[in-house]
Design a protein around this nucleic acid. Structure first.
Length: 854
DNA sequence: TCAATCCGGGG
DNA sequence: GTGTACGGATTGA
């Protein structure tokens, strides 16, 4: 089949509101082809489509052709084509070397849809025309600037013109998903080697490859492991490859080792060996180091032109712009770290983003989970290979569980947006998902696209966020304003002024409506069933999209239809609604604690029943505009409100939930974490003496050196090489490196984790790891008993000061300053004026300048 | 107390 | 396809 560019209806009709059927096409595409699991296309209009039979049956590959296309503001640069430039509906337009054009409707800037049998025909013509017009050579379309051309990657051109999307009629588990995890002797692939790979998939595969299995030694054994990994992946033939930090560690490491050892990485379903690259903004870009450690030469993984690119890949020499992701033809590469970040961006309840911590948080850790500290993996393997095999398999098992738990949203997005699944998994929702949907809608409607608005400098006012009171309150109710901003956009039809066909509002409408339906279906399905997973994932995806519609408005320079005035109007209405909610609740006797666009926390009188709580929420909800839904979400026994979006909750069945960055500290010293948990538990239970006891006992234990050193050690990462630190040492001393130098260690590896503590006078020293001193991952409780050789020469005064200033401080809002001082007074020198413990009660302090910008 | 810098993940 | 994060902790002045 040959897909034609999107077919415009009569331009005059595009001003009428789009029909429901049209809106659904904008959201879902229109071609029903089921089972697409991967698409690969080139600029000359060749496409390969891998499709899986429904229910997870076999995969077939089909060839397809499409007419590459792009959008231009004028045809001037194509004029020199003469008769080879032809209107799309004329016979001349279908001649082999012809460039066809069609003028789109409306006032939009990008108004010419230009297509040809091969994309290069268009590109070469434009470059020649622009070179002649500008009088200097133009080698790439990107040199012409943002508004001079809109050209999508080939796969997206294909998906937009065909109206196809991935995964129609497939469930998440129908995809063949494979996880692999490298175990290496270190973090830098220029010096360290792969000695083991754990592999599993969702079809029952579970295998560990290691260098000991062959009779080979050294590099030959490692190369053999890589070859066996490649063979195993090809034989399994998965649609998706997943792991935690896949793009940040496993792939760049594997690519570099394969390059050094000259092993071809023929992992794809077609095309040349070697990993491809795609540029990517998110995830690994802004981070210093990242795979830069994998290629410490200069920049990121996209750098090292000599890098993992197979000889056939193109463009690597030029992309010195650091960040990038790897690609494999025919398979989607999914990094669970992206899903974790996307999740925690709104949830803010993860203790860290590492695999082990997240898996434990979600209860995904397998029974008998084996833990080995990163730095000890190789030495442990030498002594006890079975233990490391177990550990590595546990890693891939957790990665698979995480992918399934948090990865559903990206899967569902790929059923809507004309983009590869792997791109949707790491994209920001506004530019990464909404923009492609809107571009597809415009082409489907035959409407010209506006130029991208420049940043106007008009500040947009930001989301409303209120902290009304800080401290401790009881009888807490959380009322949720479901998707406040998108509801307001719908209620008052606030959309981008330039959105002539109303695509953004139509999408928001469809998303909100269909999300409610998906939620209802999920509730009706059996827990744990594939149907439920599908609808929960769909609901999560739609929530991501709906909630990014407002951010889309407020990002000029980034999104094509940004409109700061519209964004500010949404915010203004939001403040109105939030104000109405707060007044309504206060008028009915509630005490407000915190409110933002997600919802409101408030405290109610002791005499209220749950029915009273629900009734009040319903009464206030009735005061709001019809499309704004205020719902009762939950109730809690007590709350410590610390800062906006930072609080602790006690449920009625006695569980404590900590939320917000102030209560997350993966790097913190274990004794402080233990103290904080205990103190907050006592505080919320109303047990002030218990808070004091937690403090006194911790101080005493420090003073008597009853705590082992690993309880006071902080885990830090050495990101500078010895030479780099030497260069900055005179201007800026850093404890981690000083600790190394203090014991005469002048060599370490970039990325190495060490634990350090403060000895007398606050002098940093490394913690000498007792051999086999287990896991170094946060929250694993470190070791129960310390090695007998632990000298415990830590600086108690330093840690007592830290306990008060850093940990106890997070309880400061719960007491008056005097009470706080008394509660966390030095037990050896109690103040004469300290109030008796029994007289101390937690307080709730109103915040006077409540409105703040988020 | 304030400004500047570094951190996040993977072995 | 390009570039953007961000909020907390630590360090030195």
């Amino acid at each position: 089949m040959s897909a034609a560019p999107a077919n415009p209806p009569d331009p005059a009709s595009s001003m009428v509101p789009p029909s429901m059927a049209t809106q659904d096409e904008w959201l879902w595409g229109w071609d029903p082809t089921p089972g697409i699991v991967s698409v690969w296309a080139d600029r000359d209009g060749r496409a390969l489509i891998w499709r899986r039979a429904p229910g997870g049956g076999s995969v077939t590959c089909q060839r397809d052709h499409f007419r590459p296309w792009l959008l231009l503001p004028s045809l001037d640069d194509l004029a020199q084509l003469g008769p080879r430039l032809a209107a799309a509906d004329t016979p001349e337009a279908s001649a082999p070397g012809a460039v066809a054009y069609r003028e789109l409707s409306g006032p939009g800037h990008l108004r010419y849809l230009v297509s040809a049998a091969r994309g290069r025909l268009i590109e070469d013509a434009i470059l020649a025309g622009a070179t002649a017009r500008l009088g200097h050579p133009i080698a790439r379309l990107s040199e012409l600037g943002d508004d001079a051309v809109l050209q999508l990657p080939p796969e997206e051109q294909y998906l937009v013109t065909t109206g196809r999307t991935s995964f129609r009629d497939l469930a998440f588990d129908d995809l063949h998903r494979l996880q692999f995890d490298l175990e290496t002797t270190g973090l830098d692939p220029n010096h360290a080697a792969i000695f083991m790979v754990a592999v599993r998939d969702n079809r029952g595969l579970e295998r560990v490859l290691d260098v000991a299995e062959s009779k080979l030694e050294g590099p030959a054994a490692e190369a053999d492991v890589i070859r066996r990994l490649v063979a195993l992946v090809r034989a399994a033939d998965p649609d998706v490859i997943e792991n935690h930090n896949l793009h940040g560690f496993d792939l760049p490491f594997l690519a570099r080792r394969a390059e050094i050892l000259r092993v071809p990485l023929a992992l794809g379903r077609a095309g040349p060996a070697g990993l491809g690259r795609r540029p990517s903004s998110r995830g690994y870009g802004p981070w210093r180091g990242e795979a830069g450690e994998a290629n410490p030469g200069e920049n990121g993984p996209g750098t090292n032109g000599s890098g993992a690119n197979g000889p056939g890949t193109n463009g690597s020499g030029g992309d010195r712009r650091g960040p990038g992701r790897f690609t494999i033809v025919g398979r989607e590469l999914i990094d669970t770290l992206d899903a974790v970040r996307r999740y925690d961006f709104s949830a803010r309840d993860l203790p860290g983003h590492g695999l082990k911590a997240v898996a434990r948080h979600f209860g995904l850790a397998p029974e008998g989970r084996e833990y080995v500290a990163g730095a000890q993996v190789y030495s442990t393997w030498l002594a006890d290979p079975a233990r490391v095999r177990h550990y590595a398999l546990d890693d891939v098992t957790e990665a698979a569980g995480l992918a399934r738990l948090l990865g559903g949203a990206a899967f569902a997005l790929a059923r809507m947006a004309p983009r590869r699944y792997e791109r949707l998994a790491d994209a920001g929702p506004a530019t990464g998902v909404l923009d492609p949907l809107i571009v597809r809608a415009y082409l489907r409607a035959g409407a010209a696209l506006p130029a991208r608005p420049a940043s106007t400098g008009i500040p947009h006012s930001g989301a409303a966020l209120y902290l009304f009171a800080a401290g401790v309150a009881r009888r807490i109710v959380k009322a949720d304003v479901a998707s406040l901003y998108p509801s307001l956009m719908r209620q008052y039809a606030i959309g981008p002024a330039a959105d002539r066909i109303g695509a953004l509002l139509a999408l928001v409408d469809r998303l909100v409506e269909q999300r409610l339906a998906a939620k209802a279906r999920a509730r009706a399905a059996a827990p744990g069933s594939p149907e439920r997973h599908t609808d929960e994932a769909l609901s999560a995806a739609m929530k991501i999209l709906v909630n990014s519609a407002y951010g889309y408005l407020g990002a000029p320079g980034l999104t094509r239809f940004a409109d700061v005035h519209a964004a500010n109007e949404v915010t203004r209405r939001g403040r109105e609604v939030l104000g109405a909610i707060c007044r309504g609740l206060a008028a009915r006797g509630a005490t407000l604690l915190e409110g933002d666009t997600d919802g409101v926390y408030f405290s109610v009188p002791d005499t209220w029943t749950e029915a009273d709580e629900r009734r009040v929420v319903a009464e206030v909800a009735a005061l709001l505009p019809p499309l704004v839904r205020l719902e009762f979400e939950g109730r809690y026994a007590a709350m410590l409100s610390h800062e906006p979006k930072n609080y602790a909750l006690l449920t009625y069945d006695g569980q404590t939930h900590l939320r917000g960055v102030a209560f997350r500290s993966s790097r913190a010293e274990p004794f402080g974490e233990v103290f904080l948990r205990r103190a907050i538990g006592a505080l919320l239970a109303g047990d002030v003496p218990g808070v004091r006891a937690a403090y006194v006992e911790t101080v005493t234990a420090l003073r008597l050196h009853a705590l082992p050193s690993d309880q006071v050690a902080a885990r830090v990462r050495l990101t500078k090489t010895p030479a780099e630190y030497e260069a900055t040492r005179s201007t800026r001393r850093e404890a981690a490196y000083e600790a190394m130098l203090a014991v005469g260690r002048t060599r370490w590896e970039r990325g190495e984790h060490v634990r350090i503590y403060r000895a007398a006078g606050g002098r940093p020293l490394p913690l000498l790891e007792a051999d086999g001193a287990g896991a170094d991952d946060a929250g694993l409780g470190a070791s129960a008993d310390s090695s007998p050789s632990d000298p415990r020469e830590y600086d108690a005064a330093y840690y007592i000061q830290l306990l008060r200033a850093s940990f106890a401080a997070r309880l400061a809002r719960a007491f008056t300053p005097d009470d706080f001082a008394a509660l966390f007074d030095d037990p050896r020198q109690p103040s004469l004026f300290a109030p008796p413990l029994e007289s101390i009660h937690p307080v709730l302090t109103p915040i006077t300048d409540a409105p703040t910008a988020d």
